[in-house]
């Protein structure tokens, strides 16, 4: 088991955003975390990646308790993530966004970096090559010299994923990877996610778009911070509580 969430709870003031959530993710799986707006999906991501401190509960990654660790430590342990509102290094080019995200592997010491040693230069050359590869994977190699802020929305989302891949994660958390994309971009992004998965990546994703459920091996549904269903995409789609809580009549067909 790669990620184990155990009784995770987060209160904001008196409000429970996430409440006693249990969830497991196995190596090589794609797990969908779905639920209506405000269900607490993004909060779960923020708790797992250390951007928020849980009120109670435990997060174990690859046998290591990572509850309450700082975001950069969790990144170093191998969890990459994207963000829903997709902040970027807006004034960097696309390529530089990815290059800058290669902070961890390989890592040069401060002194080696400053004094431009042979090791540092070798690392940087390797990083450049790897960054180009990642950009090719997510289909951004044609715009690698554009400033990130000038990219269309869908491309920016893909850049977010490219950046997360740059830390060479073992687990990838994608927060609404398809939000705001047009159909072409959606097809393209889904293909990229599939490709990443074929390379052995474990992925958890939060999404509203139902298309993505076809990619998932398993789906966890939460509402008001509680888990209300879990299972294969097909099963969940037929689950009545889920239909009531989330899909509403019109989506079922």
């Amino acid at each position: 088991m790669l990620l184990e969430i155990d009784g995770l709870t987060k209160h904001f003031g008196g409000l429970a955003a996430v409440s006693r959530l249990d969830m497991q993710v196995n190596k090589g799986e794609i797990v969908g975390l779905i639920g209506p707006n405000g269900a607490g999906k993004t909060t779960v991501f923020n708790l797992v990646t250390g951007f928020l401190q849980p009120t109670r509960g435990k997060v174990v990654f690859d046998g290591k308790n990572i509850t309450g660790k700082k975001p950069h430590v969790i990144a170093e342990l191998g969890i990459g993530r994207t963000f829903q509102l997709n902040p970027l290094f807006a004034d960097f080019t696309v390529l530089k966004n990815v290059v800058a995200s290669f902070h961890l592997r390989p890592k040069s010491s401060l002194l080696a970096t400053y004094f431009n040693t042979a090791t540092y230069r070798r690392n940087e050359a390797y990083i450049l090559e790897q960054s180009r590869e990642i950009l090719q994977l997510v289909g951004l190699d044609t715009v690698s010299d554009e400033l990130a802020k000038n990219l269309p929305h869908g491309y920016q989302k893909m850049l977010g994923m490219a950046r997360a891949l740059a830390i060479k994660p073992r687990l990838l958390l994608l927060d609404e990877p398809l939000a705001g994309m047009n159909p072409d971009e959606i097809d393209f992004s889904m293909a990229a996610i599939k490709k990443t998965r074929q390379q052995g990546m474990t992925i958890v994703l939060v999404e509203h778009n139902m298309q993505i459920m076809d990619l998932c091996d398993r789906v966890v549904v939460i509402n008001f911070g509680h888990k209300i269903a879990e299972g294969l995409p097909g099963e969940v789609r037929r689950n009545e509580e889920v239909i009531r809580a989330y899909f509403g009549g019109e989506y079922v067909a």
């Binding site: 951007f51 975001p71 950069h72 963000f83 290094f89 960097f92 800058a100 970096t113 997360a164 830390i167």
Partner: peptide, 20 residues
């Protein structure tokens, strides 16, 4: 790269810490 990291933090400290 040190300066790059600093500029990365300035542009988005969230993204910067998410990449370690």
């Amino acid at each position: 790269r040190i300066g790059t990291n600093l500029k990365a933090i300035a542009q988005s400290y969230m993204v910067a810490s998410s990449v370690g």
